[in-house]
Simulated scan of single mutants.
Amino acid sequence: MVAKRRKIIHRKSYRYRNKSVPQWMLVTMLIIAAMGILFGFFRQGGAETTQLTAAENTETMTTPEFISSIAETARQVAKANDLYASVMIAQAILESSNGQSALSQAPYYNYFGIKGDYNGQSVTLPTLEDDGTGTTYTIDAQFRAYGSQLESLQDYANLLQGELYLGVRRSNTTSYQEATAALTGTYATDTSYNVKLNHLIEEYGLTIYDN
């Protein structure tokens, strides 16, 4: 009798382990599995999109590329206004961070950090100032906003026609070094402004655009 009892218990346990899974449970499991696959798919796609966007945002124009984008216009404007194209391009590189600053991009196109307004158009942005001793500080300033690259370069040339910048013109100087020296303390408060401009002109051979 004891052996028979054990046999019956064994048969019941066996039938339980092999009992068919209810249909509702199968459907639930399939739905959960499908949702997991879809979630993984969209999550992967979203990550790829984010990485692509981040990669696009980190792309910046190199200095040679920026020079190529502005050089010919600068050469023509400088020639027509008795200025050094090399100095103009160097200032654009320095002031706009190779055309990557917010001020230099559309819709402002202000490559030279010129303050004030242009035909009533302006934008207010933070900027660094030099107190004359080499110490810098940040202020919010109003800058001119232009409709195109040409307007920006031409307005810069017009600004340099004033008496304050007589020493910047080609007809009043014997070299671009004299022009950059004349810009220091007048156009910019940076006490080493000419040194920075001269370095850019020499490093990238910008004097070829003065011909």
Rank of each mutant, 00 (worst) to 15 (best):
I67H: 14
A141D: 00
Q91M: 11
F112I: 04
E48V: 13
G40V: 04
A80V: 07
D140H: 05
L94G: 03
S97E: 12
S171Y: 01
T124C: 02
A92W: 00
L94W: 10
L166N: 14
Q51S: 13
G132T: 05
A74Y: 02
P126M: 00
Y137W: 05
T53A: 09
Q51R: 14
D131K: 07
E48T: 08
I139T: 14
D117E: 15
S96N: 12
V27E: 10
V123Y: 11
P64C: 03
R144K: 15
A71Q: 07
S96W: 02
A78S: 15
G134V: 06
N57P: 14
T136M: 08
G45F: 03
T58F: 03
N98A: 15
D140W: 01
A55W: 07
E72H: 15
G167H: 10
D117H: 09
Y165W: 09
T28L: 03
V77W: 03
F39E: 12
E56P: 11
K79M: 04
T53P: 07
A85Y: 04
T53E: 13
M25T: 12
F42E: 12
S69C: 01
Q91A: 08
A34D: 00
Q76M: 04
E56W: 00
S68T: 15
L159A: 06
G40F: 02
V168W: 04
R75G: 00
Y137F: 08
N57H: 13
G134P: 11
A71P: 10
T28A: 14
Q142T: 14
Q44W: 01
E65K: 14
A33D: 00
F143C: 08
G134A: 06
L166F: 02
S104C: 10
L103I: 01
A90K: 11
Q100P: 12
L164M: 07
F42R: 11
L128R: 08
Q91R: 07
F143S: 06
F143L: 03
A55E: 14
G36N: 09
G99D: 11
M35N: 14
Q44C: 00
N57C: 08
A71I: 00
G147E: 04
T58E: 14
I32Q: 05
A47W: 09
S69M: 02
I114D: 01
I70K: 04
Q161E: 14
A78D: 01
Y165A: 09
G132R: 11
Y137G: 03
Q121T: 05
F143K: 06
S122N: 10
Q142E: 13
F41Y: 13
L160I: 03
T62C: 07
A74N: 05
G40K: 05
A80E: 15
T73N: 12
A47M: 10
F112A: 08
A141S: 02
A85H: 07
Q44F: 01
G113N: 10
Q51K: 15
S148K: 12
G162E: 10
M35C: 09
T49G: 01
T58P: 02
Y146Q: 08
I89V: 15
D82L: 02
N172F: 00
L164W: 09
P126I: 00
Q100W: 07
G134I: 06
A80Y: 00
T73S: 11
L103W: 02
E59C: 04
A157Q: 07
L153F: 15
E65T: 15
T62F: 00
L153D: 10
M29S: 11
Y84R: 09
A74M: 01
D140T: 13
T62R: 03
Q142A: 13
D155R: 14
